[in-house]
Design a protein around this nucleic acid. Structure first.
Lengths: 186, 186
DNA sequence: ACCTGAACACCGTTCAAGT
DNA sequence: ACCTGAACACCGTTCAAGT
């Protein structure tokens, strides 16, 4: 007898992210998620394999929040916009965001972001053979900064300092990129 | 009656790091650490406040493993050597290393590393007022790459690819630094 | 001063049972 | 097909007690 389906995977992941955002990663338990959904903890196991799968699920969803930049902007403004969007996502989900370093970005949303960066780098003049590598490095830099910022490594510094840090980082990347294009390595 | 002291904080942290390295972060439990030390779990609480304190302790110890670079080398070689040392530390402690993003580097060892970078940046020609900021950015870049590498974000890529990635990253940082020095921001 | 034994609340996960 | 109840092994942590 097919019951009315109370929850599905998306609902589980949404509730999990909300719990983590509101009460921290330690408070993200199967019981807390279940309670928020009005269901017993065991009901979750039909929709996620186990807790690791649940964590992977919410982390993978993070990059789906990044809006694609306007297509007619110059490449450096596109990169800049995406960087700011990533920082904003990090701040919205401070305890979950650092987990992004733990798994390959393989969802549709993540691939979409990556494709946009590819195009911007192409427009910047990066050789086709180097585009994937440069994308990996730039995303590592931005992710690393955003993760450090929300995870607490810069706890001692003011928001103003971090904003200025990030602006300097952006400048370094763009000028580094420019000189890379001007004289590409052997 | 003063008993013979069986363990101390350093021994607890050493055993904890060993457990994490050998069996992963999930296997790092108070009971596993206690068993390795031949003691009951409750005995640990005299030497660490709680599990979070234990984690902080081993993470803080990580940067003490970085050897100071030879003092007579040119600045770029010093930075290069420290970067490689950090990558090596990450590979030795793959599950614990990413936690470095979560707390300010405040131990003696960490401060030592930072001072060395300050000096190298000074030698590179970075203005005194910018040295601290540039150090933050460079360490973010190196930490972010090393953490991504060991945490699994680049799981799909070969060691050779990652070595080449890192070489490119180093080049970008050095050239970015050079052009920053050539024309410092307003 | 340092460690242990017993105990508590909580956690992830399983399995058989209900509808 | 989807959810529940009962149960299990394990976890971090406390407290009073031992030496």
């Amino acid at each position: 007898m097919a019951r009315p389906r109370l929850i599905d995977r998306a609902a589980v992941l949404r509730a999990s992210l909300a719990v983590a955002d509101e009460r921290g990663l330690d408070a993200l338990t199967m019981q807390a998620v279940a309670e928020r959904l009005g269901v017993t903890p065991m009901a979750l196991y039909r929709h996620v394999e186990n807790k690791q799968d649940l964590l992977d699920g919410i982390v993978e969803g993070l990059l789906d929040e990044i809006p694609p930049p306007a297509d007619d902007q110059p490449w450096d403004e596109q990169l800049s916009a995406m960087g700011q969007a990533i920082r904003a996502t990090a701040r919205r989900h401070p305890t979950v965001f650092p987990l992004l370093l733990q798994l390959p970005a393989a969802t549709a949303g993540a691939r979409g972001v990556r494709e946009r960066v590819y195009r911007a780098l192409h427009d910047a003049g990066v050789a086709e053979a180097d585009v994937a590598r440069v994308e990996r490095l730039i995303s590592t830099i931005v992710l690393g900064f955003a993760a450090s910022e929300v995870a607490g490594r810069f706890r001692a510094h003011s928001r103003a300092t971090l904003d200025a840090d990030y602006a300097a980082l952006e400048r370094i990347v763009v000028t580094g990129l420019a000189s890379y294009v001007a004289s590409p390595p052997a």
